[in-house]
Amino acid sequence: TTITITINGEELRIRGDHEEIHKILKAWEEDHNDEEIVRLIRELAER
């Protein structure tokens, strides 16, 4: 699965399995701050 998210003008492409993507979207849905979401995404992007 690949998704693209733009946060603060920075486009981040994430490839991951369903569970990893779900974790990010769940954090977003629960209204975590952008920095935390960006950190989760970067961790995935670095793999």
Rank of each mutant, 00 (worst) to 15 (best):
E43A: 03
H32M: 15
T1L: 14
I7T: 01
E35Y: 07
D34S: 09
K23A: 15
H22N: 12
R42S: 05
R39D: 06
L40Q: 10
I37R: 02
R47A: 15
L44E: 03
V38A: 04
V38R: 07
D31Y: 08
K26H: 09
R13L: 07
I14R: 01
D31E: 06
E11H: 09
L44H: 03
E10R: 06
G9P: 00
V38S: 07
V38C: 05
H18T: 12
I3S: 02
R47S: 15
D31R: 09
D34G: 10
H32Q: 14
I37A: 07
I24E: 00
E30V: 10
G16C: 06
L44V: 03
T6R: 11
E20H: 05
I3H: 06
H18L: 13
E11L: 12
T4G: 02
D17V: 07
I41T: 01
W28C: 02
I24D: 00
H22Y: 11
E35G: 06
E36C: 02
E11A: 08
D17F: 11
E46M: 03
L44S: 02
A27L: 14
A45E: 12
W28N: 01
E29T: 10
T4Y: 12
E29S: 10
L25F: 08
V38P: 02
T4W: 14
R13F: 14
I37F: 11
T6A: 06
L25A: 04
N8A: 11
K23N: 12
R42C: 13
D17L: 06
L40D: 01
I7L: 08
K26Y: 05
I41H: 01
E10I: 10
K23E: 10
T4V: 14
E35T: 10
E29R: 13
V38K: 13
R47E: 15
G16S: 09
N8H: 10
G16I: 11
I24T: 03
T6M: 11
R15Q: 13
I41M: 05
D17M: 08
K23Q: 12
E30C: 04
I41W: 03
G9Y: 04
H22T: 14
I41D: 00
D31C: 08
I21F: 05
R39N: 09
E30I: 10
H22K: 14
K26S: 10
A27H: 07
L40V: 10
R42T: 08
T6N: 10
G9H: 03
E36T: 09
W28I: 07
